[in-house]
C-alpha cells in the first residue's frame, strides 16, 4: 500500500471549481512535483491536505488512516508538514523561536511542570534543552547560524524561505509539502534549495510533494510529476513525459521553452 493517497478530491469556491476529481498516490521516499499555470488549483491541493480547506468530495489517506476533515493541528501531528507560497512565518519571533515552534508537537511539559523550568534539572528544562539541541541541528543543516537570534521580519527573503523549510523539518514529518520553494530566489539560492530538498529526501527519508514553476528545479528533483489545469489532472508520470505532453504545453502556452 502507498504511504499517502488522495482519492477523487473536488473543491469549489462559489463558481470556481478549484479542484475536480483529483487522485494520486505517493510512495514512501519519493519526490512528487505538481505543476500547472497560475490558478490551476495547486495550492488548493496543499490546503486540502493540510486541513485548512475541507474538500467537497473525496477522501485523503495517510498510512491507511482517513484524515479527511481533520483539523490542521491533528494533521500536523499525524506527520504532514508544509510551507506556504507566500511565507507564513512568525514575523516577530526570532529564527530560533520559529524553529522551536516546529518542535511544538514533540514537547509536552504541562503548565505546572513549566513553572519549575528555572531549575536546570527540572523535566521542563531538560525537555526545552533537548529540543534546542534538535533545533541547532537544523540550523547547522540549513546553515542558518548567522540568523538564529534575529527576528524574522529583519531577515532577507531567501533566508525566510529557508527558515520556513527548517520549521517544517523540525516537525520531523513523514510528508513534506513545499509550495513554490524556489519562487523569488536567485539562481544561487535556487541551486541551494534543490540541494537541500534532495538532501531531505536522501538523508531524512522524507516524502516530498513540491509545487513549482521553475522547470529546472522540477526536472532536477522529481521522481514523478503531475500537471494540473483548471483543477483537473491533465498528465502524470515521468518528468520528461509530462513536460512533453501536448496538453501540458498548451496549458503553459509556450511558457516553458526550457523543456529540452
Amino acid at each position: 500500500m502507498s504511504l499517502f493517497s488522495l482519492n477523487h478530491i473536488s473543491k469549489s469556491f462559489g463558481g470556481v471549481q478549484a479542484l475536480s476529481d483529483l487522485s494520486f498516490e505517493l510512495e514512501e521516499g519519493e519526490i512528487f512535483s505538481v505543476i500547472g499555470p497560475n490558478g490551476a488549483g495547486k495550492s488548493t491541493i496543499f490546503n486540502c491536505i493540510s486541513g485548512l480547506y475541507t474538500p467537497d468530495e473525496g477522501s485523503i489517506q495517510l498510512a491507511e488512516k482517513e484524515i479527511t476533515g481533520w483539523a490542521p493541528h491533528r494533521i500536523a501531528r499525524a506527520g504532514i508538514a508544509r510551507t506556504f507560497q507566500n511565507l507564513e512565518l512568525f514575523r516577530y519571533l526570532t529564527a530560533v523561536d520559529n524553529l522551536l515552534l516546529g518542535r511544538h508537537i514533540h514537547m509536552q511539559a504541562s503548565l505546572l511542570r513549566i513553572l519549575a523550568m528555572p531549575f536546570r534539572r527540572s523535566r521542563a528544562a531538560r525537555e526545552e534543552i533537548a529540543h534546542r539541541h534538535k533545533v541547532e541541528e537544523i540550523i547547522e543543516f540549513l546553515e542558518l547560524e548567522a540568523y538564529r537570534d534575529r527576528p524574522v521580519f529583519a531577515l532577507p527573503y531567501g533566508i525566510q524561505k529557508l527558515l520556513e523549510l527548517g520549521r517544517a523539518l523540525a516537525l520531523e514529518p513523514k510528508i513534506l509539502l513545499l509550495d513554490e520553494p524556489a519562487a523569488g530566489l536567485n539562481n544561487e539560492e535556487r541551486q541551494d534549495m534543490i540541494f537541500w530538498i534532495k538532501d531531505i529526501r536522501d538523508q531524512l527519508g522524507v516524502t516530498v510533494i513540491v509545487i513549482e514553476h521553475n522547470m529546472e528545479l522540477v526536472k532536477d528533483i522529481s521522481d514523478r510529476v503531475l500537471a494540473l489545469n483548471f483543477g483537473r489532472m491533465i498528465a502524470t508520470g515521468q518528468v520528461l513525459e509530462v513536460l512533453e505532453h501536448e496538453e501540458v504545453r498548451k496549458a503553459y502556452l509556450g511558457e516553458i521553452p526550457e523543456t529540452t
Partner: peptide, 27 residues
C-alpha cells in the same frame, strides 16, 4: 517563565500567524 516556555511560544505563534500555528500542530 510562562512566556519563555512552549506555551508562551504557542501564544506568540498564534499572534503572528494563526494559520502557520495550526499547520505546525498548535491547537
Amino acid at each position: 517563565i510562562l512566556l519563555k516556555s512552549r506555551i508562551g511560544r504557542a501564544f506568540q505563534a498564534i499572534r503572528d500567524s494563526d494559520i502557520a500555528a495550526s499547520v505546525i500542530g498548535i491547537n
